[in-house]
């Protein structure tokens, strides 16, 4: 089980790097979807089913659809980003940096016995999802509502061409 999680983590990492570095916007969006999907799998494997479901449906699904439609509606050149954003030296250095950071992290984890504590007071999932959602985390509902509103306003403010 641990091995699968680590593999998914690695894939997620690769998808993420691809999302940032690919030249085509479309391919970037698809790589992002892939990263989200990997994250959803990890969440499911770690035991939070609901989180995994939401992640998969919203991020890997809905968001990707929105991205792709936005990209196809825009007028940018989908294939080749301007050359001036490229930096050969940094591209070559990227793998090395990643490996070094990974090694450092592993060393830290190993040296400081950075273990997930076993005797964690587990939260009793006695309450149903509904109970938690509506009552215990009422504040977050308001938060979500406002976030969505903000997002909508953002889109309008940034992208509305006509006055």
């Amino acid at each position: 089980m641990e091995a699968v999680i680590y593999i998914c983590l690695g894939l997620m990492l690769i998808f993420g790097i691809l999302a940032v570095m690919l030249r085509s916007l479309l391919k970037s969006a698809i790589a992002l979807a892939g990263a989200s999907a990997m994250l959803a799998i990890i969440m499911y494997l770690l035991g939070s089913v609901w989180a995994g479901i939401f992640e998969l449906s919203v991020c890997a699904g809905l968001i990707t659809v929105v991205f792709i439609s936005a990209i196809s509606l825009s007028n940018t050149d989908k294939e080749d980003l301007p050359r001036l954003y490229e930096d050969a030296k940094r591209m070559a250095a990227l793998p090395a940096v990643l490996i070094i950071c990974g090694v450092i992290l592993i060393l830290i984890v190993a040296k400081t016995s950075f273990m997930l504590p076993a005797a964690v007071p587990a939260v009793e999932m006695a309450d149903t999802f509904r109970e938690i959602f509506w009552n215990q985390r009422q504040v977050d509902i308001w938060g979500q509502v406002i976030v969505v509103l903000t997002g909508a306003l953002t889109v309008v403010a940034l992208f509305k061409e006509r006055e």
């Binding site: 977050d140 406002i146 976030v147 903000t150 306003l153 953002t154 940034l158």
Partner: peptide, 30 residues
Amino acid sequence: GMVLVTDLFSLYVFLEIVGISSFVLIAMFK
């Protein structure tokens, strides 16, 4: 919201709201 909540996660949520809106406010005049 940030000032009114009593939970760390909610704090985070409202923090994000503040972040997004301020980002757009800076960028919106393009």
